[in-house]
Design a protein around this nucleic acid. Structure first.
Lengths: 220, 220
DNA sequence: TTATTATTGTATCGATCACTATTCAATTCA
DNA sequence: TGAATTGAATAGTGATCGATACAATAATAA
């Protein structure tokens, strides 16, 4: 007899009573995330999802709830995988400048990875949308806002640590780099190459504010 | 008797024989453009459009063809209005730097105009989409590519005129500024203020390449 | 075994999608 | 005036949308 169960909190197990599920949750989320990433929320139908997962609709609904619930879970699923590296860089010990350099170049690489959809699943998602998709739009917008806040917090730290001049407008600077990565995502969707994205990442980094001591007019 | 006709090429007029049309073409395009702009292509239904125009579906189809045709025409309609100012700036006599400054600040103003949808109708449109929307995606992608090409051409001119150093990577530089305006559009959709967009436009302009004579390391 | 429970598989549900066949009304031309 | 022409208005088309009702199936519990 094969024991199948799910560990929940301290060795406590729950044995399933009824017929076992055909659909593995993580596999389903991988499939869903890929489709949503590629086609967007409105562009992905339940039929697309069930076909790709190889299960009938009731299985999908039993496992994930509604289409919106599935989208939310797929976002969480992918975010954990995609945000890990740059989040550690941003919140780690390297300088804010180096962290942003890593952030942009890492994004360039991820946005053009051959075995994934182009661009970012979140950055350009549900910007234009039907009224009935408002709640989903707010969902992704909140994630974008979280990213912006994370970067601003790092810049605030850089000001506190003296890397950036006191009085630096960290809101605007954070928004600038989010705008850059957001535009990079869009350009990746339009087919921009890794090389192009890396070049413009460097251009964006050249806008890094100089310490006050070294500030001067560029053109005499 | 009231004469109603359409002037076509040199005073030649066409008198309509049948029942006059209820739907004015330009009014319909204004309505359609606004809806597509706000909700995107997939997020706007024919029912939305006919209701907003106040005409039944057959009138819409008689005037504009298909939904995709209408989208294309609405794009043309809006593009003429929205692109005029910055296109003249880019192709006019002012320096490439000043033209880009105008371009970005004009975009910031247009993307946050209170009586229009936020952001740009084209820049963030149909990036993620269903397979059946592929032709529409290519339509807007081609428009974005045209904008990119226009800016690159201006930078090439700036190199030829000596404003930019010989050997400047105009492709990457053009892509950078397109990325910035594209990200600005996305941030505008997310609610960024005019002031914020203008600030980050200035940051983006600070990445403008210095003439070779004045180039130096920013941090010792 | 028998009962209980949960999930699968099938066949949808009503609503909405883009789109149109048909009929009626309004205009011009002869 | 009457015929021809053209668009409006009604009422749909089949397809697809997200989501489910229902019954057969497969597991555990008693």
């Amino acid at each position: 007899m094969i024991f199948i169960g799910i560990d929940i909190k301290m060795n406590k197990t729950i044995r399933k009573r009824g017929r076992p599920r055909l659909l593995d949750r993580d596999v389903g989320l991988d499939v869903a995330a890929r489709l949503f990433w590629e086609r967007g929320y409105e562009g992905t139908s339940i039929a697309d999802l069930t076909e790709a997962m190889g299960v009938p609709p009731p299985s999908l609904y039993a496992t994930f709830g509604s289409k919106e619930d599935l989208y939310r879970q797929a976002l969480d699923h992918i975010s954990q995988r995609e945000n890990k590296a740059w989040l550690e860089a941003i919140q780690g010990k390297m300088s804010a400048h180096d962290a942003m350099a890593f952030f942009l170049h890492d994004a360039a690489a991820r946005f053009t990875c051959p075995d994934k959809p182009r661009g970012c699943m979140v950055l350009n998602a549900v910007l234009q949308h039907a009224e009935k998709t408002e709640s989903v739009a707010q969902l992704v917008a909140a994630r974008r806002a979280l990213g912006l806040q994370t970067i601003k917090a790092r810049f605030d730290r850089a000001v506190a640590e003296g890397e950036l001049a006191p009085g630096t407008d960290t809101d605007a600077l954070a928004c600038f780099y989010v705008v850059v990565v957001q535009g990079m995502s869009a350009q990746a969707c339009d087919g921009a190459s890794l090389a192009t994205l890396k070049q413009l990442a460097d251009i964006a980094l050249s806008a890094w504010p100089m310490p006050a001591a070294h500030r001067q007019k560029a053109i005499p």
